[in-house]
Design a protein around this nucleic acid. Structure first.
Length: 568
RNA sequence: UGGGGUGUCGUCAAGUGGUUAAGACACGGGUUUUUGGAGCCCGCAUUCGGAGGUUCGAAUCCUCCCACCCCAGCCA
């Protein structure tokens, strides 16, 4: 178990638990659990819940179980279990072998259902699904009792057994709790607790053809595991009275349920249904597409577990439904990577530069610092030669006032190399586009230091033509063009707000040769551009592929943007 | 009078009768700089959804009102 460390801000759940511990409730013990349904991949919203549950357990010297709520074999599967475990582990949490499944409790749940029947608290209903819906009433009108509600206990027992033995088709009947059809809380209007489902379960196989509903499973599973604080999201607030009712009828340990608001992030979607659709309909390349807020997507994008945990600590926990600015997530990432990522130079859109006064066949090895934030990371040698590449964005033939990079007649510094001055440009005869720069260098400025106090306004990153590698770089941007893609006044599908420029593949980039053999998944800062990582799926010895994790803060970009905006 | 929730800065979020109403992100300005990066400094809610009331004193207590979210799966 990792200790998320530094004083996280206080939140109401921690306050409740602290109070309980102080008062000796549950003998001062804290038992938490993270209970995903294995029917999809985990996303950053789950990370919030994971950090909360494991973090609180850790803080109060308690434990946190990983429990799969696998009560619906129609939608669940092994693939998801595997992915979920990998994600939780990657985030840095350890369930210390306490890996449980609601399906482990099927026998106990069945026995409890029988107990309820015997106590006259549950009955087998033979109404059709449609009829059950009609009998339930509406939000403002009370429901009607089923004609089967008063079947004798013996008959209920016999029928429930027959359900279990496979005597009924799917949907023919259900077991319902006998509570109150007039309740203002729909969950209390005789909720279905068992249904017939002739489906093979990924763990129990064909042992069962009836499966308990989530509502009849979740609370009792927590109870069985001795959970003290059962933390879940807001939409289950209405279910709490029902869970309490089961616990009370059964006379078993009563976990305390506490609800908090789920995480929403700007410029993305978080519901499993929507993520599933993006994957299934091919809008993204898979659950681990780097544009997705899934844990696997963030991982592939280059996010670190540390940055995600830091983010989860900073967003807080409350009951107010909120939308967190993705800029905060990016801030946490930059802060982490700034300290750890080695610096390297790479040119995304190469513009050829010829240093006319530099010897034809000479190649110099220049010293470059691996990370100015951390001297212990040392230095490396980068080759410099007569033909170089710089970024196309770093040259403008007629620069606006605030642009202080290279331009005709202007001098700039090449990082760790020399001052160079642009003396001429070569243009494509047909298009008129600048395709090459003719420059001179000042040998006295080796290493980048001016020898005469001469100042230069910009430092550019560059790469030597001879000592550099070709690479593909995938520039990722937000998946949606709207802060809240769900927000559609009427009927507009969230798909309509997909950002058409969320992926930009740069295929003729050049990176410095130190990147040869770079390890998949490793992080780098491409100086002046941003943080990038070696793609874990598509990068290889023959073809390096980098993903842009996040750009550096871009002051010039903002100036440009502000100016185009003011010009109208 | 269906039930359950929530409203504190652009976005999160502390605060639970006496604070100049924390902090973070964002934003703006300055400083520094061989990354227009990073760092550092400064600014950023006379006010807590609204209106009344209680009190020496209210974001915190009371009353009424308003806005928004969730619930009618044999999904979770």
């Amino acid at each position: 178990m990792i200790n998320t460390g530094a004083a996280s801000p206080s939140n109401f759940i921690r306050n409740i638990i602290r109070e309980d511990v102080v008062n000796g409730k549950n003998h001062g013990r804290v038992r938490m659990r993270f209970p995903p349904e294995p029917n999809g991949y985990l996303h950053i919203g789950h990370a919030k819940a994971i950090c909360l549950n494991f973090g609180l357990a850790d803080e109060f010297g308690g434990t946190c179980n990983l429990r799969f709520d696998d009560t619906n074999p129609l939608k669940e599967g092994e693939e998801y279990i595997k992915a979920i475990k990998e994600d939780v582990r990657w985030l840095g949490f350890d369930w210390e072998g306490r890996e449980y499944y609601a399906s482990d409790y099927f026998d106990q749940l069945y026995a409890w259902a029988v107990q309820l029947i015997k106590d006259g608290k549950a009955y087998v209903d033979s109404l059709s699904p449609e009829e059950i819906r009609q009998y339930r009433g509406t939000l403002t009108e009370r429901g009607k009792e089923s004609p089967y509600r008063d079947r004798p206990v013996e008959e209920n027992l016999r029928l429930f057994e027959a359900m279990r033995d496979g005597d009924f088709e799917d949907g023919a009947c259900v077991l319902r709790a006998k509570i109150d059809m007039a309740s203002g809380n729909l969950n209390m209007r005789d909720p279905v607790i068992y249904r017939v489902l002739h489906v093979r379960h990924h763990r129990t196989g064909d042992a069962w053809c009836i499966y308990p509903m989530y509502d009849f499973t979740h609370g009792q599973s927590d109870s069985i595991e001795g959970i003290t604080h059962s933390v879940c999201t807001l939409e289950f607030e209405d279910h709490r009275p029902l869970y309490d009712w089961f616990i009370e009828q059964l006379g078993i340990h009563h976990p305390q349920q506490i609800e908090f608001a789920r995480l929403n992030l700007t410029y993305t979607v978080m519901s499993k249904r929507k993520l599933m659709r993006l994957v299934d309909e091919g809008y993204v390349s898979g659950w681990d597409d780097p544009r997705l807020p899934t844990i696997s997507g963030l991982r592939r994008r280059g996010y670190t577990p540390e940055s995600i945990r830091d983010f989860c600590d900073r967003i807080g926990v409350a009951k107010k439904e909120s939308m967190v600015d993705v800029a905060l997530l990016e801030h946490c990432l930059r802060e982490d990577l700034n300290k750890r990522a080695p610096r390297v130079m790479g040119v995304l859109r190469p513009l050829k530069v010829v240093i006319e006064n530099y010897p034809e066949d000479q190649v110099e090895e220049l010293d470059a610092i691996n990370n100015p934030e951390d001297p212990s990371m040392g230095t490396r040698k980068v080759p410099f030669s007569r033909v170089l590449y710089i970024e196309q964005d770093d040259f403008l033939e007629s620069p606006p006032k605030k642009f202080y990079r290279l331009a005709p007649g202007r001098e700039v510094r090449l990082r760790y190399a020399y001052f160079i001055k642009c003396v001429d440009v070569v243009k494509d005869a047909k298009t008129g586009k600048v395709i090459e720069l003719l420059c001179t260098y000042d040998p006295m400025t080796k290493g980048g230091d001016s020898h005469d106090g001469r100042k230069v306004k910009a430092t550019l990153h560059w790469v030597s033509a001879v000592g550099s590698l070709r690479a593909e770089v995938r520039l990722y941007d937000r998946l949606f063009s709207r802060a809240n893609p769900e927000e559609s006044k009427d009927g507009t599908d969230f798909i309509a707000h997909l950002n058409p420029d969320s992926l930009d593949i740069m295929s003729s980039c050049r990176v410095e040769s130190t990147l040869e053999g770079a390890v998949p998944g490793s992080h780098y800062q491409f100086e002046r551009l941003g943080y990038f990582c070696v793609d874990t799926k598509d990068s290889s010895e023959e073809g390096l592929v980098f993903n842009r994790t996040v750009s550096l803060r871009d002051t010039w970009g903002k100036i440009k943007e502000a100016e185009t905006r003011s010009k109208g």
